[in-house]
Write a protein that binds this DNA or RNA. Structure first.
Length: 282
DNA sequence: GCGACAG
DNA sequence: ATCTTGTCGC
């Protein structure tokens, strides 16, 4: 009952996926469509969503899809939805959406049904937007399917269209000073595909922000920065934390480890001192 | 054989 | 994505 190895998709499936991306790509809106996006203080923005999919340890099929909504600018979680799912499509670079997006769309649908008032005004997505092989990453895909503004936030540079994580690139990263500093990622065609953003004063690795849907790159970067208490923007970070926590609580420690009358010790005393130190990586 | 490889 | 605790620094 636990998928092991992932079989590479048939060539036929890949070509279908490419056609699907090309079709949906025509529906992407690059640019600000909401009033708050053009406001210097994001006045009017009250809810920012984050999504993520975490996996069960030795399993390539079982996973937890999560959607969280945070208040802005407080960045406090006001909604959480974690759902165990069985992934069908394998992971193939350039086609991440076909593996994860169906479950994220489901989560958005549940939110719209249960708590319409908490539907986020924008979603931060783990992965890329237009910074993609065919200009249609998971953030664009989710944006088009939900019609919600989306921002792609990747932790690693997707080396596409001439973009390279070479010595020159690493040097530009090294030159970033304070949190908020950034530099454009220019593709071979001269197009700005995204921005490398130093999201935290003491983080050596930048975030790679790109437009997903219904937002400009400028607003996307500014919003991402505005959501960062640590390197990873809070909405995505909370979605990640809560989805893996859900997995642990659901099927984390099976059988043996229950020493008789031991009570689970959750949130304890006052500590939780996140080391906002010097080496925030991964 | 070598390098790439979002999550 | 996942494998993983403590340790160093402010």
């Amino acid at each position: 009952m636990a998928g092991e190895a992932e079989a590479p998709p048939p060539e036929e499936t890949l070509s279908f996926w490419k056609r699907e991306q090309a079709r949906l790509k025509t529906l992407v809106v690059v640019g600000d469509t909401e009033a708050w996006q053009r406001d210097a203080a994001f006045s009017g923005l009250r809810r920012v969503g984050g999504v993520d999919v975490s996996f069960v340890k030795g399993d390539s099929v079982r996973a937890c899809a999560s959607l969280v909504v945070l208040s802005y600018p407080e960045l406090e979680v006001v909604y959480e939805d974690c759902c165990m799912v069985s992934l069908t499509a394998p992971y193939v670079s350039g086609f991440l959406a076909f593996r994860e997006v169906p479950f994220l769309v489901d989560a958005v649908r549940r939110l719209r049904e249960k708590e319409p008032r908490l539907v986020p005004q924008v979603l931060l997505v783990d992965g890329n937007g237009v910074l993609h092989h065919r200009g249609f990453g998971v953030a664009c895909h989710l944006g088009v399917l939900t019609d919600l503004p989306c921002v792609g936030v990747a932790k690693k540079l997707l080396q596409v269209d001439g973009l390279e994580n070479d010595a020159q690139h690493r040097e530009k990263i090294r030159l970033l000073q304070a949190g908020g500093d950034s530099f454009p990622l220019v593709g071979g065609s001269g197009t700005v595909l995204g921005m490398a953003l130093k999201s935290h004063d003491h983080s050596s690795k930048p975030l790679y922000v790109s437009v997903g849907h219904k937002i400009s790159l400028e607003a996307a970067v500014r919003l991402t920065q505005g959501c960062c208490r640590f390197r990873i923007p809070e909405p995505v970070r909370q979605a990640d934390i809560r989805s893996r926590d859900y997995i642990r609580r659901t099927l984390g420690a099976p059988g043996p480890p229950a020493p008789a009358q031991e009570r689970s010790q959750k949130a304890q005393g006052p500590k939780v001192c996140p080391k906002g130190g010097s080496k925030e990586s991964k």
